[in-house]
């Protein structure tokens, strides 16, 4: 599948998946998935729901166990010990569909908790970082509010800033705009585009084809637990090489 790595700045592979399998009881959610993501690449994963996209993403930072094959993130092998999983998680940021901000903490506390406890940086540095990141996602003035006082779009931007506060090498996005009202989708996508342009390695499960077209270096099409198509966006959206891809595109475009 490496013929697709052209077009981006082609660093070393930071995520390598070989024959990854996931089973839920007797249902095979992922069936021997293999792919690579290079440093600085932006990869969008699209496809019908139930195709294993989110499961795949969640396995990359150990939120789901691995039943076969292996995932190597920045040199750390999964499945691995608890310690390995913890190390992976500190290098990989994750943004959830439902934001999952800590509701009983202020925005500031949400942002400084992980750097201070998992990275052991000081309070002053954590505060400074939190303020800088909130400015970057455009809500610097909301730092002392609680998540429940913010709109969905604002909450999701806080969640992105919270993940960035760990200075991750890779960012995972699990349908980050699916729970948002239409008028708030753009403000989150703008942040993601800016992040992509800054050179962040990103893996996004998304239904936003405009984002995939604009920001992605590669598009993966997943269905029935397999990667059926792996192509640059221009080719992915113009010529279907798989019949399920064709039917998916006809529904979504």
């Amino acid at each position: 599948m490496s013929e697709t790595a052209n077009g981006t700045n082609g660093g070393d592979p930071i995520i390598r998946c070989r024959g990854v399998v996931k089973r839920f009881d007797d249902f095979t959610a992922l069936d021997a998935v293999s792919t690579e993501v290079r440093t600085g690449e932006v990869v969008c994963i699209v496809g019908p729901s139930g195709g294993g996209k989110s499961t795949f993403l969640r396995m990359i930072n150990g939120l789901e166990g691995i039943d076969g094959g292996e995932i190597v993130v920045d040199g750390i092998h999964l499945p691995g010990s608890k310690k390995d999983i913890q190390r992976v998680r500190r290098e990989v940021g994750m943004v959830f569909q439902s934001f999952n901000l800590f509701m009983h903490m202020s925005v500031r506390e949400n942002l400084i908790l992980a750097p201070m406890t998992a990275r052991k940086i000081g309070r002053a540095a954590a505060d400074e970082r939190a303020e800088r990141l909130l400015e970057r996602v455009g809500i610097g003035d909301q730092i002392d509010k609680y998540p429940s006082q913010l709109s969905g779009g604002q909450q999701q931007r806080v969640a992105i800033a919270r993940a960035l506060a760990m200075e991750p090498k890779v960012m995972l996005f699990d349908e980050p705009t699916s729970a948002l009202d239409p008028e708030m989708i753009k403000e989150v996508l703008d942040v993601m585009v800016e992040l992509a342009e800054s050179g962040m390695t990103m893996l996004c499960v998304t239904h936003e084809m405009s984002f995939a077209r604009e920001a992605a270096g590669r598009v993966l099409f997943m269905a029935d637990g397999q990667i059926l198509v792996d192509a640059p966006p221009a080719r992915f959206f113009s010529e279907a090489e798989d019949e399920r891809q064709a039917s998916f595109l006809s529904k979504i475009l």
Binding site: Q86, R89, F102, M166
Partner: peptide
């Protein structure tokens, strides 16, 4: 569940 998952995803130590 999402709160716990977010804590895991951030790599927070178990105590925290």
């Amino acid at each position: 569940r999402g709160q716990v998952e977010a804590a895991h995803a951030l790599g927070l130590p178990a105590w925290t």
